[in-house]
Design a binder for these strands. Structure first.
Length: 484
RNA sequence: GGCCCGUUGGUCAAGCGGUCAAGACGCGACCCUCUCACGGUCGAAUCAAGGGUUCGACUCCCUUACGGGUCACCA
């Protein structure tokens, strides 16, 4: 029978959501959900020194926004709690002692100083020093005596003396290492807290995690994890190691080096769905040429075999393109709801029809933050030079522009109904009368109305939105500039 | 340095012994057009190198190079 797949996202509350972590969460979610499994959230907050106020909320918010709903977690409970690691601290010592009893781990009373000197004496050009197992051969009596005397201790995992350890990673395949390479790593620290590696194994086992999904930086320590599972007599999980998300060929994405977090991208006007869609494709491919996916669609077609082995560089340009795709293909009402705040902010007090402007904008936007810059001219005609009137393709220059504007002015002044259609009819009729090209009339009008080299919408649309009075005023300004 | 992993256009990538080596972003050109954009058409651009194995290698094996990871009482 098939065991239900359980994956977990185990972030540290750092106060922001790293893109690489979000992608890991996404894959964990998809691996579980594509097989009808469960996605669990476990907060790893044991690093008390780096604790940030409100940091767990960032995690909850991100999962909620992206739709990566967890089935169990600190905020919603579950059968395998607690889901906050700091609340699990009492349970690890017993497991460590169990291993000692089984002969798979041992007490170590070595001082940090001794360990330090060990490294130095070993430093013959190499920075590598395994623990020398000084305490491995202590007799039970000696150990007990030291414990009774209150000598500080750690508990170390006893690695096999010889042979090799092999494990299979879903992405990287079969990996074998010499056991001689493995250090007797510390399981319980002198402060009686578990090390990360140990806590992870115990937690994952207790939470019945079937697929451990994590960054490839853990590939090297996986043999130790596996040995730990074996030592306990537990069944090891399926390992899925993920290649890193890079900033460039040499560096991982990192907040500290100025790379953007999920929140940063949202603040810069990127859409949640586009971000999720984009990062899904950073290291995974569906095998066909589809690129636009909703989360639901990803759940349906996600397959572990599409995961890549090599790191991928985060390309903001492609994200930006994809963001534009989402904007263009969105229902207008939904788009308007997103754009409205930005429009209101930029055009406050103008009384302009924001919906009409939004319609013009929807197909030309890459991010929501482009809005203010694109619509500013509606509020106030910018200062501009008459060189804007010269456009080679439109076959215009100052002279033509001036005469076109002069011709357009009375026509528009005489317009009773002011809407896109009436403006269109009037101007096109004028083009016919004058026997000029469309652009020779429309380009100057558009330029006069916007004062910009480019604008969302052409002459007729801008005139309609600006209204008769303001449009005429701007055309007069244009004439004035050209007459100088 | 030891060990582990990786390497298809600038970027994301498909490929899983036989393809003119998909597709997308970006870039360039053209078309459409009242600007920009959208849309459409086309184009430049890739198998890290060298050995094998094979009738045949991007695909399998080895070596080299170059990257990355890891070697904590940090997570």
């Amino acid at each position: 029978m098939n065991m239900e797949i359980r994956t977990r996202f185990a972030p540290s509350p750092t106060g922001y959501m790293h893109i690489g972590n979000l992608r890991t969460a996404l894959y964990e979610y998809l691996i579980a959900k594509s097989q009808g499994g469960k996605f669990i959230l476990r907060i790893e907050d044991t690093d008390q020194e780096r604790l940030v106020e409100g940091a767990t909320d960032v995690i909850y918010n991100t999962l909620r926004m992206t739709g990566l709903h967890h089935d169990e977690g600190p905020d919603i409970g579950g059968d395998y709690g607690p889901y906050i690691q700091s609340e699990r601290m009492g349970m690890y010592m017993d497991y460590a002692k169990e291993l000692v009893e089984k002969g798979q781990a041992y007490y170590c009373f070595c001082t940090k100083e001794r360990l330090e000197s060990l490294k130095e004496s070993n430093a013959e050009g190499a920075a590598f020093a395994k623990y020398d197992r000084h305490c491995l051969h202590l007799s039970p009596e000696e150990v007990q005596a030291k414990l009774d005397a209150g000598v500080p201790y750690v508990i170390r995992q006893k690695m096999p003396d010889s042979g090799t350890t092999t494990f299979t990673d879903v992405v990287y395949g079969e990996i074998t290492v010499d056991n001689a390479e493995l250090d007797d790593q510390i399981l319980m620290k002198a402060d009686s807290f578990p090390t990360y590696n140990f806590a992870n194994v115990v937690d994952d086992h207790l939470m019945c995690i079937t697929h451990v999904v994590r960054g490839s930086e853990y590939l090297s320590s996986t043999p130790k994890y596996n040995l730990l599972y074996e030592a306990f007599g537990w069944e090891p999980p399926v390992y899925v190691h993920l290649p890193a998300v890079m900033r460039d060929a040499h560096h991982k994405l990192s907040k500290r080096h100025g790379d953007k977090s999920f929140e940063d991208l949202i603040n810069e006007g990127y859409l949640v769905d586009a971000i999720v869609n984009y990062i899904a494709l950073l290291g995974w491919s569906p095998g066909d040429t589809r690129e636009i996916f909703t989360l639901k669609e990803l759940e349906e077609c996600f397959d572990i075999s599409g995961l890549s082995k090599s790191p991928s560089i985060f390309d903001i340009k492609k994200l930006t393109w994809m963001n534009g795709e989402y904007m263009k293909n969105m229902d207008f009402e939904k788009f308007y709801a997103l754009a409205e705040p930005k429009l209101t902010e930029a055009l406050d007090g103008t009384g302009l029809d924001l919906k009409k402007i939004a319609e013009l904008l929807q197909k030309r936007l890459e991010t929501l933050n482009d809005i203010p810059g694109l619509v500013a001219f509606f509020k106030e005609l910018p200062e501009y030079g008459t060189e804007l009137y010269t456009h080679k393709k439109m076959k215009t220059n100052d002279e033509i522009a001036l005469s076109s504007l002069k011709a357009a002015l009375p026509v528009l002044e005489g317009l009773e109904d002011w809407n896109t259609q009436s403006i269109h009819d009037a101007l096109m009729a004028l083009v016919g009368e004058l026997g000029i090209k469309n652009g020779q009339l429309l380009w100057p009008v558009r330029t006069a109305l916007s004062g910009e080299p480019t604008s969302p919408g052409g002459a007729m649309e801008l005139a309609d939105i600006l209204g008769k009075e303001e449009s005429l005023r701007r055309i007069r300004v244009g004439i004035e500039k050209l007459e100088k």
